[in-house]
Simulated scan of single mutants.
Amino acid sequence: MRAIPDSLDPAAVTEIDLRLRTVAAEHDVRIPWAVESGSRAWGFPSPDSDYDCRFLFVRSRERYLTLWPERDVIETPLDETFDVNGWDLPKALTLIAKGNATVIEWLRSPIVYSGDAAFRDELLSFAAAVVERAAVGRHYRHVALHQQAGAPSLKRFFYVLRPAAALRWLADHPDEAVPPMDLPTLLSESTAESEVRDAATELIALKSVTREMGTGAAPRVLERFVARELERAEAYESMAPVKDPARARADALFRRLVG
């Protein structure tokens, strides 16, 4: 599958496609999932946003049967426009089992350079079955708090607002642990007030035409929304696990996908 919006620079997409083909050939790996991460996939790009391609790769079964495992990350040269790197399947599965929301987000990215839908669906089903909501909630709360600790700016505020929106989405979907990736969807699929959604839409529109957002304050309605969601999410910090350990299920899925 492939899902590339018209807003992406065709030359940039061509370069990313080339890097993915080169990685597959030079490292002798299969890349069943390659997506955009970062502000473009999160729904609030700037005119000068770089391209953050993330991919999952799979080696042959024989290469996993070794006493000296290979490095579980493949990186391509980093520059001011492109940040393209990927994780090995075992790394992705173990992190999902621990409730790492980063890998789960890649599986839900709205921008797909190349992908095997069946592979994606298997990993999403695995995540839905084993991921602890509390672990995901803690992840997003900590991301927001970390960003709040930095020098305030409107650009940084987006990296606080999106985790807060993910926390609201989790609160509104008590039977799910895999939230959408992009900010507009998180808000539209939650009970966030209309003034919150409107203010976020206006701020996204401003960012889309502004290369460097200043240090001005975010709209008060959004600051109140963030504060409320972070306070409510503090409850995740003391929640105990409620699901069985996922190791056996992760092993079974790994063997099946590699085979």
Results as ranks from 00 to 15, higher is better:
129 A>Y: 02
152 P>R: 02
155 K>C: 08
123 L>V: 05
119 F>L: 01
133 R>N: 07
149 A>V: 13
109 S>E: 12
107 L>M: 11
124 L>H: 05
133 R>K: 10
157 F>L: 07
136 V>E: 08
129 A>K: 02
106 W>S: 00
161 L>W: 09
118 A>I: 13
134 A>W: 01
135 A>Q: 13
141 R>S: 14
141 R>N: 08
146 H>S: 15
150 G>M: 14
120 R>Y: 12
154 L>T: 10
119 F>N: 05
117 A>F: 04
151 A>F: 11
141 R>C: 04
153 S>H: 09
149 A>D: 15
117 A>P: 12
151 A>Q: 14
142 H>F: 15
138 R>L: 08
142 H>Y: 13
117 A>N: 08
123 L>E: 08
161 L>K: 01
135 A>R: 01
140 Y>Q: 08
143 V>Y: 09
135 A>M: 07
156 R>A: 15
143 V>W: 12
112 V>K: 05
154 L>W: 04
135 A>E: 07
134 A>Y: 05
120 R>F: 03
107 L>N: 04
147 Q>K: 14
150 G>L: 13
131 V>E: 01
155 K>T: 09
116 D>G: 08
140 Y>I: 04
114 S>V: 15
123 L>Y: 07
119 F>E: 06
108 R>F: 03
139 H>G: 08
148 Q>C: 05
123 L>W: 12
160 V>N: 03
147 Q>P: 01
126 F>D: 01
106 W>K: 01
118 A>T: 13
152 P>A: 13
101 A>D: 07
144 A>L: 03
146 H>C: 12
134 A>N: 12
150 G>D: 10
118 A>C: 07
135 A>I: 02
126 F>I: 05
124 L>R: 06
146 H>G: 14
105 E>D: 15
112 V>C: 13
108 R>E: 14
129 A>P: 10
123 L>R: 03
137 G>Y: 09
156 R>L: 12
142 H>E: 15
137 G>L: 06
144 A>D: 02
120 R>C: 12
144 A>C: 04
117 A>S: 11
119 F>P: 08
156 R>H: 10
118 A>W: 07
111 I>V: 15
149 A>T: 12
110 P>Q: 01
116 D>H: 11
131 V>Y: 00
121 D>T: 00
115 G>K: 06
136 V>S: 05
114 S>T: 15
158 F>E: 04
158 F>T: 03
113 Y>K: 00
158 F>P: 08
153 S>W: 08
103 V>I: 15
143 V>N: 12
157 F>Y: 14
120 R>L: 09
139 H>Q: 04
148 Q>F: 15
103 V>R: 03
128 A>R: 14
133 R>H: 04
117 A>L: 14
106 W>E: 03
155 K>E: 10
118 A>D: 14
154 L>P: 07
138 R>P: 12
139 H>R: 05
106 W>M: 02
149 A>K: 12
118 A>Y: 05
105 E>S: 02
110 P>G: 02
152 P>T: 01
107 L>F: 11
144 A>Q: 00
124 L>T: 09
135 A>F: 09
103 V>A: 02
129 A>F: 06
131 V>K: 00
159 Y>K: 01
156 R>D: 13
122 E>K: 11
132 E>W: 04
128 A>P: 09
113 Y>L: 11
105 E>Q: 02
102 T>D: 09
161 L>I: 13
159 Y>P: 10
137 G>T: 07
105 E>N: 00
125 S>M: 09
